[in-house]
Amino acid sequence: MSDPDFTMLQQRMLAEIAAKTVFSTNYLDKAALDSRVMNAMATVPRHAFVPFEMRPYAYVDTPLPIGYGKTISQPFIVAVMTDLLGVQPTDTVLEIGTGMGYQSAILAQLAHRVFTVEIIEELAEQAAHRLADQGCDNVEIRVGNGCQGWPEHAPFDKIMVTAAPELIPPALIYQLKPGGTMVIPAGLPDAQQLIQLRKDAQGSVTTREIFQVLFSTLEDVALP
């Protein structure tokens, strides 16, 4: 497919995200996502972050397989999670679950710095190449257990988690700055909820359930 074809499909994807946002007003308490988020979705080429054989489907509003039993998230969910995170240009963001780097690239458009953790080394390597090709020089990747976060660079203004634990990992809550926001899917596999977690200036935590979702499980394993 040619670049003009991808551009047309990307515009169609953006229109679908806008329409689904209107239908989700009761869940999101808003009928339109932040313009900065939509601009980032319009800027980052999703087809550059999927396996070659999946490129014709890159702008369909659905998850796509990326290998190793993992998927790239549905564009609408990427946009909603990014909007809920409320990233500011001065923010340092932690992402858990790099995949092939699409969500990382979206965050890189909005934040000062992005630190992202991927448990599968081969995916982390692919993400590094794809992000470099797109000029995302404010993203740093490490291979590790996402449940442990990245303590060397904590605390973080915002934390985005793209795989679902049953319970929100305490280490991630600890690594979130006072005044910060985390967006994370959590719960049993058949009852996951997308959650917006906020930590106030005194360190107290509140959570808000958005709607039911289905994500890959966040693996909490010891790495060599």
Score class of each variant (00 low, 15 high):
Met1Lys: 02
Ser2Pro: 12
Ser2Leu: 12
Asp3Ala: 10
Phe6Asp: 09
Phe6Lys: 07
Gln11Glu: 13
Gln11Leu: 12
Met13His: 12
Leu14Asp: 04
Leu14Val: 13
Ala15Gly: 05
Ile17Glu: 08
Ala19Lys: 01
Thr21Trp: 06
Val22His: 07
Phe23Thr: 13
Asn26Pro: 00
Tyr27Thr: 04
Lys30Ala: 10
Lys30Cys: 08
Ala31Ser: 15
Leu33Phe: 09
Ala40Pro: 05
Ala40Leu: 00
Ala40Phe: 02
Val44Ala: 00
His47Ala: 00
His47Ser: 06
Ala48Trp: 05
Glu53Asp: 13
Glu53Cys: 03
Arg55Ser: 03
Pro56Asn: 09
Ala58Asp: 06
Tyr59Leu: 09
Tyr59Pro: 03
Val60Gly: 06
Thr62Ile: 03
Gly67Asp: 14
Gly67Ala: 04
Tyr68His: 14
Lys70Asp: 09
Gln74Arg: 07
Pro75Ala: 08
Pro75Glu: 06
Phe76Val: 01
Val78Lys: 01
Ala79Cys: 06
Met81Val: 06
Leu84Met: 14
Gly86Ala: 15
Gly86Pro: 15
Ile96Trp: 08
Gln103Leu: 10
Ser104Asp: 09
Ala108Phe: 07
Gln109Asp: 07
Leu110Arg: 11
Val117Asn: 03
Val117Leu: 02
Ile119Thr: 07
Ile119Ala: 01
Leu123Arg: 01
Ala124His: 02
Ala124Phe: 03
Glu125Val: 15
Ala127Trp: 13
Ala128Val: 01
His129Thr: 10
Ala132Cys: 05
Gln134Met: 06
Gln134Tyr: 05
Gly135Thr: 02
Gly135Tyr: 03
Gly135Ile: 07
Cys136Met: 15
Ile141Glu: 02
Arg142Thr: 10
Arg142Asp: 03
Arg142Leu: 04
Val143Arg: 07
Gly144Val: 06
Gly144Glu: 02
Asn145Cys: 09
Gly149Phe: 03
Gly149Gln: 04
Pro151Phe: 08
Ala154Trp: 11
Ala154Ile: 05
Pro155Val: 14
Pro155His: 11
Phe156Lys: 13
Met160Cys: 09
Val161Arg: 09
Val161His: 11
Val161Thr: 10
Thr162Lys: 05
Thr162Trp: 04
Thr162Phe: 08
Ala163Phe: 03
Ala164Tyr: 14
Glu166Lys: 15
Leu167Ser: 15
Leu167Ile: 14
Ile168Tyr: 15
Pro169Tyr: 09
Pro169Gly: 14
Pro169Val: 14
Pro170Ser: 12
Pro170Thr: 10
Ala171Leu: 00
Ala171Met: 07
Leu172Gly: 13
Ile173Val: 12
Gln175Thr: 04
Leu176Gln: 01
Pro178Ile: 01
Gly179Leu: 10
Thr181Lys: 01
Thr181Glu: 00
Pro185Gln: 15
Ala186Met: 15
Gly187Asp: 12
Ala191Asp: 13
Gln192Lys: 02
Gln193Phe: 02
Gln193Cys: 12
Gln193Asn: 15
Leu194Glu: 12
Leu194Arg: 10
Arg198Ile: 13
Lys199Phe: 14
Thr207Asn: 11
Thr207Glu: 15
Arg208Ile: 03
Ile210Lys: 09
Ile210Tyr: 11
Ile210Glu: 08
Phe211Asp: 05
Phe211Ile: 00
Gln212Asn: 09
Leu214Glu: 08
Phe215Val: 14
Thr217Ala: 15
Glu219Ser: 14
Val221Cys: 04
Ala222Tyr: 06
Pro224Trp: 04
